[in-house]
């Protein structure tokens, strides 16, 4: 219940934050809302020497429209995702998924940047950003770089962030009105982690699915795209039966874990069923 000692700084700007992180090296950790980090600290599963609190950097908060995309500041809270008018209008998948994350009190503190940088494959947002084809804006001592979501999650709770780098924003596409979406979260109790989650977006055209993108939660050490199911869905009739068929390929190429919440073969089964359902909902199939 009691964290080990650490030093703490609260930089006043992104530049100062990057400097502090770079100075702290491997033993420095960013804290924003702290909702992923504080449980680890309390259980003494993490022992940073330095916490760099970026929570006060208000320029990293909020959603902006840019050409063809939306830029979500890393400090935007999960609660804010559920209510943001831009997201609700143009990226409903994020807004909807956010309502299913943790609980209200946690959502008030937890940030999108924290959730992505934490890179827990059981977390919901990594698969969502992956399905959206989003990218991550990263500021470091060398300046800013943009990384596609597929390249950001490199291993179990590991990202391509280097020491000294700070995730500052997430860029997701504006989806037009012909796109539908669904996040299917399958969990044992309301506040427990997903056994499997399926994030799907689908573009519908003439009663068919023109294009689908699917991200899977907890089907491997990193969030993964269900590419076989995406291919199967493309061109399929927008019907429950056809999309169920497409969903049956969702676990191809995945290597889900076996743990307390579910065995690998059950996860595979769930991924198939839930992908069919998510696609059907995203495509507006009856």
């Amino acid at each position: 219940m009691i964290p080990a000692r650490f030093d703490y700084v609260r930089p006043g700007s992104v530049e100062d934050a990057v400097r502090a992180l770079a100075g702290g090296g491997d033993d420095a950790r960013v804290i924003a809302g702290g909702q992923s980090l504080l449980p680890l600290l309390r259980l003494r599963l993490a022992f940073p020497d330095l916490l760099v609190d970026v929570g006060g950097l208000s320029e990293l908060r909020g959603v902006r429209e840019t050409a063809g995309s939306l830029e979500i500041g890393a400090l935007t809270t999960i609660y804010e995702l559920t209510r943001d008018p831009l997201l609700t209008a143009h990226c409903g998948l994020l807004a909807e998924t956010a309502t299913l994350i943790a609980d209200p009190a946690v959502r008030h503190r937890a940030t999108i940047g924290g959730a992505l940088a934490h890179a827990d494959p059981a977390g919901d947002l990594p698969a969502v950003v992956l399905a959206l084809g989003g990218s991550l804006l990263i500021r470091g001592p060398e300046g800013e770089r943009e990384v596609r979501a597929g390249d950001f999650f490199t291993d179990y709770m590991t990202t391509s962030l280097s020491p000294g780098e700070l995730l500052v924003a997430v860029r997701v596409p504006r989806l037009g009105g012909d796109w539908g979406f669904r996040y299917e979260k399958f969990r044992l109790t309301a506040q427990s982690w997903a056994i499997v989650g399926v994030a799907a977006v689908a573009r519908r055209s003439n009663g068919h699915v023109a294009e689908a993108r699917i991200g899977l939660t907890n089907m491997g050490s990193v969030p993964v795209r269900a590419t076989a199911a995406e291919s199967a869905a493309a061109g399929a009739e927008a019907s429950a039966a056809a999309l169920r068929e497409a969903g049956s390929r969702a676990d191809e190429g995945t290597s889900p874990p076996s743990d307390l919440r579910g065995s690998a073969d059950y996860r595979r089964h769930l991924a198939r069923v839930l992908t069919g359902r998510a696609l059907a909902a995203a495509a507006g199939a009856s």
Binding site: P39, L188, T189, A190, Q191, S192, W193, L260
Partner: peptide, 9 residues
């Protein structure tokens, strides 16, 4: 987090 006491939901 692992011993699942149910909530109102």
């Amino acid at each position: 987090a692992d011993y699942l006491v149910p909530s109102a939901a």
